[in-house]
């Protein structure tokens, strides 16, 4: 059977022009990708080993830019802020999304409305999400201040205070991305086989046992994929911070992407910024590939 289909496939390719067809079909897409993604990647690698002045290269400095990164207190701080932000946001989103997906597993009235409404946060332009939250947090015009005043309290300070601003950013991310976690996990839950759950019910297992011994272990691969996807995505977060706090106050919300952008376009240190971005790329790739390897091992066992 296997060899039969194989043979048929080879026969299909056999005739005349059809031999060149795969290359002709791949070429246009590959050309765009080579020109606009691969060439810049290579160019970025080259730029990261140079020193720039006023936007043009003036000297080759080898790995100096990379070495300098690790003694740059601002870079280290932005890395730490990013790690804190990603870890906190993604784990909250995973827990909330999972809880909500379990809750919505059984059909009930209102669930379609809920699902429709939950699409909104993740499709709204990220820049507008940041505007939404600025309007909530603002000390003079914000919803929190208005609510607090309506109840007889005073103004609320969010974006002016380092800790509050950071928490405010995490809340924004949770608001925006818990729905995606929810949708992925719900699809995962719906694709689980019914039999083990029937058997557990016949045996009289309580809901907590069912969750700990059946649901959670069976959901682990989907949960892992969702967490990895969100983690990679959250690492590159830029738009929301750029509009909400611009990295402030001080460096409290300055994610690595914001620091890189400022280094390149505000401080005009092109080579140094290129080295920084290459480092981010390598970190994310390493993260992704170790996650894929981990998942394969889980699948195999």
């Amino acid at each position: 059977m296997q060899t039969g289909t194989q043979a048929r496939k080879y026969r299909l390719q056999g005739a005349g022009l059809d031999l060149a067809l795969p290359y002709l079909m791949l070429a246009p897409g590959l050309m765009v990708v080579l020109g606009v993604l691969v060439y810049p990647l290579w160019d970025g690698l080259r730029a990261s080993t140079r020193a720039y002045r006023y936007g043009s290269p003036v000297a080759d400095v080898g790995f100096k830019n990379y070495v300098q990164l690790w003694s740059d207190a601002q870079f280290l701080n932005s890395l730490w802020v990013t790690v804190k932000f990603v870890a906190l946001s993604v784990s909250i989103e995973a827990v909330l999304g999972f809880a909500l997906a379990l809750f919505c597993l059984h059909e009930f009235r209102g669930i379609r409305l809920l699902r429709t409404v939950l699409i909104i946060p993740m499709v709204i332009t990220p820049v507008v999400v940041a505007i939404l939250f600025r309007l909530i947090y603002a000390s003079d015009a914000g919803m929190l201040t208005a609510l607090s005043e309506a109840m007889g309290g005073g103004g609320v300070q969010i974006l002016g205070n380092p800790l509050n601003a950071f928490i405010g950013l995490v809340v924004l991310d949770v608001w925006e991305w818990t729905p995606l976690m929810f949708l992925i996990l719900l699809a995962g839950l719906q694709s689980l086989p019914h039999e083990p759950f029937e058997a557990a019910r016949v045996d009289g297992a309580g809901p907590w046992r069912v969750f700990a011994d059946l649901t959670f272990p069976m959901m682990r691969p989907v949960l892992a994929v969702a967490v990895v996807l969100r983690t990679i995505d959250a690492f590159g977060t830029f738009d929301q911070v750029f509009v909400l706090t611009r990295g402030g106050p001080g460096e409290a919300t300055r994610l690595i992407s914001i620091y890189g952008y400022d280094t390149a376009f505000k401080f005009q240190q092109t080579g140094y910024a290129a080295a920084l971005f290459v480092t981010i790329g390598l970190v994310v790739l390493a993260l992704a590939f170790s996650a894929i390897r981990l998942l394969r091992r889980v699948d195999a066992s």
Binding site: V36, V38, P40, D43, G281
Partner: peptide, 24 residues
């Protein structure tokens, strides 16, 4: 290999090539 290569490109955060694309 081309498929895997394109997927790898997709994983890299776009911000990584911001500067060279700007220069291009």
């Amino acid at each position: 290999k081309i498929g895997l290569f394109l997927l790898t490109l997709r994983i890299i955060p776009p911000v990584v090539i911001l500067i060279p694309v700007y220069l291009l």
